[in-house]
Design a protein around this nucleic acid. Sequence first.
DNA 1: AATATATTGTGAAACAAGTAACTTTATAAT
DNA 2: ATTATAAAGTTACTTGTTTCACAATATATT
Lengths: 214, 214
Amino acid sequence: MNSNQEVIRRLSRYRNVMRKMKGLGLVKVFSDNLADAVGVSPSLVRKDFSMFNLTGNKRGGYRIDDLVTKLNTLLGKDKKQKIIIIGCGKLGQALMNHNGFPRVGIRVVAGFDSDPAVLNAEAPIPILHVKDIKEFIAENEIRVAALTVPEPAAQGMIDTLRKTCVKGVINFAPLTLKSSDDFLIHNMNIEQEIENLFYNIHFAESNPVENLVA
Amino acid sequence: MNSNQEVIRRLSRYRNVMRKMKGLGLVKVFSDNLADAVGVSPSLVRKDFSMFNLTGNKRGGYRIDDLVTKLNTLLGKDKKQKIIIIGCGKLGQALMNHNGFPRVGIRVVAGFDSDPAVLNAEAPIPILHVKDIKEFIAENEIRVAALTVPEPAAQGMIDTLRKTCVKGVINFAPLTLKSSDDFLIHNMNIEQEIENLFYNIHFAESNPVENLVA
DNA sequence: AATATATTGTGAAACAAGTAACTTTATAAT
DNA sequence: ATTATAAAGTTACTTGTTTCACAATATATT
Ligand SMILES: NC(=O)c1ccc[n+]([C@@H]2O[C@H](COP(=O)([O-])OP(=O)(O)OC[C@H]3O[C@@H](n4cnc5c(N)ncnc54)[C@H](O)[C@@H]3O)[C@@H](O)[C@H]2O)c1
Ligand SMILES: NC(=O)c1ccc[n+]([C@@H]2O[C@H](COP(=O)([O-])OP(=O)(O)OC[C@H]3O[C@@H](n4cnc5c(N)ncnc54)[C@H](O)[C@@H]3O)[C@@H](O)[C@H]2O)c1
C-alpha cells in the first residue's frame, strides 16, 4: 500500500524525539512540537499520523506513551532485529562494537570475513569465515546484513546473499547496488555524501550551470 | 537555483560508472547505458544532463572523457576536499584510516577528541585536543567536518562549529541535527536505516495500517 | 449549560519530480 | 545528394508529496 520511504524515516524521528520528551517527563505532545523538533511542518506531522491511523485528541494533542507504543509496533521494534556484518575491517569492526545498537533493539549476531587473520569464533560476537555464511544465515534466520567489504567484493556478496533468506542489506561499499522488490539494498555512500556537501557549499549559492559554462 | 539533492547524487553516480566504463576502454556512452547502470530511466539521465548544460551529440551519445571532466568541475572535484573528523572513537578512526578517501580526492587532515588517551599530534593524520579545534579550522580553512562523537555531545559540537568557517557537517550521531541555508548538515543515521530495512521487509508487503489497527 | 478556543483530521490546491512522447539534428546508408 | 535513422534535447503530462485552509470536536472557560 504505502511504499514511501521518507514517511517511515519521519515516523522514526518522531518516535525518537518523543522518547526524549518522555525522558523529560512530558506526557502529551502537539503536532506543532513535533514539527519544530523534527524540522517539518505541523500539517505534515498530522498527515503522516493520519496516514497510519495514529490518532490524537481533538484538543490536547497526542499521548506520547500511546504513540511511541504504536510506532514501535508499526516500525517492528517489538521484534528482535538480528543483523550480521560482512567484512570485518575498520568499518565492519566499528559496527560490530557499536554500543548504540542494543539500545534500539538491534543485535549484531556475527561477523564474516575472508581473511583468516581476523577470524575469531570464540568472541562474544564471533567472526566466522565467509564460506560458512549461507549455513549460518539459514540456521539463524538472518534477514538483514551490513555489507562492509571492499568495493570489488560487494556485488559478488550480494549475489550470494540473494540465494539466502536475507531480504535487506545496508551497503557501505562506495557503489550503488540495485534493490529489487524482494531484496532491499540501502546504499550508504559516505564518500558521495561528503562530495555532495562540498558541492552544496561551493556551488549551490552561485549558479552551477553558469560556473560550468563559463 | 537548483536545490534538488537527488539530481546531484545521480550526477555523482553517473560519473562513477563512467569512470569504470573508461577503465574498460569505452569512449562514448548513451543515455540508455547510463540509465541501465545507475538504475534510472534514460529520459531522466538526459534531463539531468540538460539541466546542467551537459551536452552530448545528437547521434553518438556522450563522450565519457568530456563528461567526466565536466562533472568533476561541477561537483567540485578539481578542488582539494579537506575534512576533519570530530570524535576519534571506533567510527571516527575507521573514517580517519579509510583508504577510499584519497582515491576520490577527499583528504582527512586531522582528528579531534576530548579524551587525552587517544590524542596523538605526531601521527600522519594528527589527533588533536578538541579545545584547539577553532584555531585549527581557521588556520586550515576547513569547510567540512565529520561528526562522530557520542549523541549527547553532538549538538554542542554543532554550536561550536557554527562559529567557525565550517559550512557542512556529515553527522553520524543517531539524532537529526538541523540544517540551515548557510550551515549544511547531512545526517547519516545508520541505526535508523537498519530499522527502516526491517520495517520494509517485515511490513511492506502486508498492509501496515491494518497490522496496526487490528 | 452555553460559549469560546485550541488542536486534530482531511480534502483540495500547489508544488516538485519523474516519465513519456515528441522534435531536432548529426551521422550513416543508399 | 537524398533519405533514413538513432539518439540527444525538450516539452507536456503524470504521479507523488507537501502545504493550505477549514470543518469537526474535545476541552476549557464563564
Ligand atoms: N573505513 C571507512 O570509514 C569507510 C568509509 C566509507 C566507505 N567504506 C567502505 O566500506 C568498506 C569497508 O571499508 P574498510 O575501511 O572497513 O575496509 P577494510 O579493508 O579495513 O576491511 C574490509 C574487510 O573485508 C574483508 N573482505 C574482503 N573481501 C571479502 C569477502 N569477499 N568476503 C568477506 N570479507 C571480505 C577483508 O578481509 C577486510 O577485513 C569498503 O567498501 C569501503 O570503501 C569505509
Ligand atoms: N560505531 C559505529 O559503528 C556507529 C554506528 C552508528 C552510529 N554511530 C555513532 O557515531 C558516534 C561515534 O560512535 P563510536 O562507536 O565511534 O563511539 P566511541 O565511543 O567509540 O567514540 C566516541 C569518541 O568521541 C570522543 N568524544 C566524546 N565527547 C567528545 C567531545 N565533546 N568532543 C570531541 N570528542 C568527544 C570520545 O572520547 C570517543 O573517542 C556515536 O554518536 C554513535 O552513536 C557509531
